[in-house]
Amino acid sequence: MFTEIDIATMDEPAADSVPPQPWRTNKRIKGKPVNGTKKSCDTRAEWVNHIKRIRDAQDQAAFAELFQHFAPRVKAFLIRSGSDATTAEECAQEVMATLWHKAHLFDPSRATVATWVFTIARNKRIDVIRKQRRPEPEELDWGPEAEPEQDDVIALQQETAQLRTAILALPEAQRELIEKAYFGDLSHREIASQTGLPLGTIKSRIRLALDRLRHAMN
């Protein structure tokens, strides 16, 4: 299913184009993020502000940076999931457009931007490649009046950075199995739960965020 057409490594956005971030003190790292360090989680947390800038100010510069980072990943993900390069290109554009239009629904106390982009790309894959509807749970959002707590946002972004470190530290065979599952190469019968993923902390973190959201909604 894997096609090599159009695959190339894409550079990270230039470090000097990143605007100041309220909770970020370290400089953004150019190139591959360093696994699990404080810096790496800052690198990831800053995308959160890009989404806010799109949501609040229709900021095209912020969008261009997100696009440069995520569109090639989404396209590679779709190709890896069985799409041809032309379809993957179109779908990656649609995924990025969805990100713009749904910026107000992104909840950084429950997901990183990478996670959120993944869910949009996954739904696109189900829609276009598998030609299937994707039932989603009832939407929960903070609405126009409320925002998640900054501390919760930072904590979730840090937990996710730790999850990433843990995934990268898994034995190669196990990591391949996880990748296959998320690229849609495994049927639900083949996905075993014993993937050894350390999800306890992040799950508790998301649960806490959901509780606060429910409280805010009531």
């Binding site: 990478a114 996670t115 996880i178």
Partner: peptide
């Protein structure tokens, strides 16, 4: 889904 985010990344 967070795992999926890491795979994508």
């Amino acid at each position: 889904e967070a795992v999926g985010g890491q795979v994508l990344e």
